[in-house]
Design a protein around this nucleic acid. Structure first.
Length: 373
RNA sequence: CCAGGGGUGGCGGAGUGGACAAACGCACCUGGCUGUAAACCAGGCGCCCUCGUGGCUGCGCAGGUUCGAAUCCUGCCCCCUGGACCA
């Protein structure tokens, strides 16, 4: 696969592909960034969906960065609003988890670089100037509309610091100098702001090889669905798009998601309980996980169908969907295939975290999980 | 700082001195029905137990009044709406 194909492989959206082609054609150095809040235990969406793309980026010769957003997590009241615990979790657990996930998927964790938010901001006047610049070029209304990037709704009461979060996230991009900004589709609003202000920044614009200001290219991977039934069912495609962010896998609903170090029993029971209507392909979490996560990782899956056992290859996503829609695949068979294959991916990660040195920190986070935050 | 309104279980939201472990809805759990889940039906849903018209804890926090308080009083904290301040 060539550079471009590797980069856009399996992505749900690229803003814009033309910009990306230009960047590659002109032989610019490709600098990637993806940021994460430090909240609870890491789930499949965070750990595996992202790593799956990072692996591709690395293969394409992109320099990859994982940004551990400790300040953002603090602003967003994660981990009991304790900055010290947040930082400790970032360094001792998140960093390790991403390395393990990336290795498991076939990437190179040695080449992966981590950036801690608080370190990026330390003694960094230019960062705050960029922050102001971005804020000057964005309206309050727009920032308010963008707060769903932090899993919050416009209608809920928020403190003012939370409104600083989106411009900070945008400033991170310029501070790091990332021309490839990567995230789940849910982070779209922040990235669009970044692109809109990119050419207006007076102080730290993103530059190409010829020192010309450019817009960062936004690369959005698919967001895995939560396993639960949607609040409204049946649902139309346009309604689904509107509430997709609410339906994504979320740590605040432990039953809706699988964590990267869940036990085999937990994986089994969660998936067996998952919402999974027969022949339904628009909103079907187990099917979604199978075609968007497991298939790209395993590259080949065998599924029991009413026409016997069938093998599906990496690019047979549409074929699986079609067979499911036509009722060739029974929901329970689908679930069983998902459980088996997913566990094969997770087992080494699960085992890695059995090590004594992670016990304490994971337990701490388990407790938080039950506290809801 | 002032005035008014408000803080109830995971969430929303009743309740304004006893029948309140706290209506109702959502979420959640268990069982039944389905080759999964959902829907539907039954039950549960603060903690403890010798499982009872049992004990303990409980309605922002701390005290108080009362035979008895989520409900009344005092102080404190926090939130909302508006006002004041704007040298």
């Amino acid at each position: 696969m060539d550079k471009l194909s590797l980069i856009i492989n399996n992505l749900e959206e690229v803003l814009t592909e033309d910009d990306l082609k230009n960047l590659i054609r002109n032989k610019n150095r490709l600098v990637h960034y993806i940021g994460f809040e430090i909240s609870g235990l890491i789930h499949l969406g965070t750990g595996l969906m992202s790593s799956l793309k990072i692996k591709d980026f690395q293969k394409a010769g992109v320099k990859c960065h994982i940004f551990l957003a400790d300040w953002h997590s603090y602003i967003n009241d994660k981990l009991g609003g304790d900055l010290k615990i947040i930082k400790e979790t970032a360094v001792k657990y998140y960093q390790e988890a991403f390395k393990v996930c990336l290795e498991q998927i076939g990437g190179n964790s040695q080449k992966l670089e981590f950036i801690l938010g608080s370190e990026l901001y330390h003694n960094n006047d230019l960062y705050w100037l960029t922050f102001i610049e971005i804020s000057k070029n964005t309206t309050l209304a727009r920032i308010q509309r963008s707060i769903d990037i932090m899993g919050r709704k416009l209608k809920e009461e928020i403190d003012f610091a939370k409104l600083c979060y989106p411009p900070m996230q945008v400033a991170d991009i310029f501070a790091i100098g990332a021309n490839l900004v990567h995230a789940g589709l849910d982070q779209r609003k922040a990235h669009v702001i970044a692109r809109d202000v990119a050419l207006k920044l007076k102080f730290k614009p993103l530059l190409d090889k010829n020192k010309k200001p450019i817009k960062p290219i936004a690369l959005h991977h698919h967001i895995l669905l939560g396993l639960a039934k949607p609040p409204k069912w049946p649902i139309t495609e346009s309604e689904l798009k509107e509430i997709l962010v609410e339906l994504k896998m979320s740590k605040s609903k432990p039953e809706s998601c699988v964590f990267i170090h869940d036990s085999k029993e937990e994986v089994e029971s969660k998936i067996l309980r998952a919402f999974c209507p027969p022949k339904e392909t628009l909103f079907n979490p187990p099917l979604d996980w199978l075609v968007n996560l497991v298939l790209p990782i395993k590259k080949e899956i065998s599924i029991k169908t009413s026409e016997g056992i069938k093998k599906y290859k990496e690019h047979d996503k549409a074929k699986i969907l079609k067979d499911y829609q036509n009722g060739l695949i029974h929901p329970l068979d689908l679930k069983e295939v998902l459980i088996k294959n997913l566990w094969e991916i997770l087992e080494p990660i699960h085992n890695h975290f059995k090590n004594e040195k992670f016990k304490k920190i994971i337990q701490q986070l388990e407790v938080k999980k039950h506290d809801g935050k």
